[in-house]
Design a binder for these strands. Structure first.
Length: 288
DNA sequence: TGATATGTTATCTT
DNA sequence: CAAGATAACATATC
């Protein structure tokens, strides 16, 4: 769920609302979620928020960073004095803060930053900013599609690189799209949507795509990611932005989650299979 | 009650 | 080594 557009949505919110604010205290309610010494960051100010694929780095002004991966159900929510009324806050997804899913609380000089996580798969790591690139979650990250934001210095996925990545790979194209080591940022929702848009069947072997199909799919990936970002991400499950508001992209899915419903293009029934251990949705008529 | 949900990593089989 | 399947993590929701 939180894939590139959702994490970028969080990043934009944090950039706007917590950069410049000082950490005055840290409360860790669930120890396994946070690694590192909280003492290192007390007194430091947020300087910059970077994104690497689906991960974030909250850089402080004292050479330390808080690296964050929200995995499936993590939420980073800021309560700041300049946002008095938040009209679209999702009560169902957030409710009172802190709540029973709030595992880490950063108290700021002006406001609070909460980390919530229903499934507890996400993590936060306090590390030296200079050592970010040595982290496993970054070392093996592939180039990421360009969706109009540059914040991390990550390599971008060009059409030439994409052709190189799919060349000679007999893995299915959908599994390849979701492989973070090959392409960073694309998860199950956007892989399904991009393949539908490009008219390519998810089980096709990557190496069997024609030159034309490779270009079409490359363009489709960028298009759906940009669309997701435009709608503030997809709140299919627990995703909310840095203010606790839902995204809207789930209202525009073509195939994801549409099993047994008519294809928006041709009216045929959308199929569901499992690929890479994940629900895979496609139209037999429109994708081949 | 049981199926389903996703990101990542580990493990096992082919 | 490549690829594919499956499970594990933890829990809510339908």
């Amino acid at each position: 769920m939180p894939e590139l557009p959702e994490v970028e949505t969080i990043r934009l919110g944090l950039e706007k609302y917590i950069v410049g604010k000082k950490i005055v205290g840290v409360e860790v309610r669930l120890k396994k979620i946070l690694q590192g010494e909280t003492l290192k960051i007390v007194g430091a100010k947020f300087k910059k928020i970077r994104r690497f694929g689906k991960a974030l780095s909250l850089d402080l002004d004292n050479e330390y960073s808080i690296a964050v991966h929200v995995k499936m159900t993590g939420q980073l929510i800021a309560k700041v004095p300049e946002v008095q009324k938040v009209p679209k806050v999702s009560k169902a997804l957030v409710g009172e803060l802190p709540n029973k899913f709030t595992h880490v609380i950063f108290r700021l000089d002006k406001g609070v930053l909460y980390y919530n996580d229903v499934r507890q798969f996400g993590w936060l790591k306090i590390i030296q900013t200079a050592k970010i690139k040595d982290q496993n979650f970054l070392k093996n990250l592939g180039p990421e599609p360009f969706v109009g934001q540059t914040s991390s210095g990550q390599a971008f996925l060009t059409l030439e690189k994409f052709r190189e990545i799919i060349r000679n790979k007999s893995v299915s194209i959908k599994v390849l799209l979701m492989d973070q080591k090959r392409i960073a940022g694309v998860g199950n929702i956007y892989a399904n949507e991009a393949l539908f848009l490009a008219g390519i069947h998810p089980t096709r072997k990557a190496m069997m795509l024609s030159s034309h199909e490779a270009r079409k799919l490359y363009q489709a990936i960028i298009k759906v990611l940009k669309l997701g970002l435009k709608y503030g991400g997809a709140s299919e499950n627990t995703f909310v932005n840095a203010l606790g508001e839902k995204g809207e992209y789930q209202n525009y899915f073509s195939v994801y989650g549409q099993a047994n419903k008519p294809c928006k293009n041709c009216g045929n029934i959308v199929k569901r299979i499992i690929l890479g251990g994940r629900g895979t949705f496609y139209c037999e008529t429109c994708q081949y």
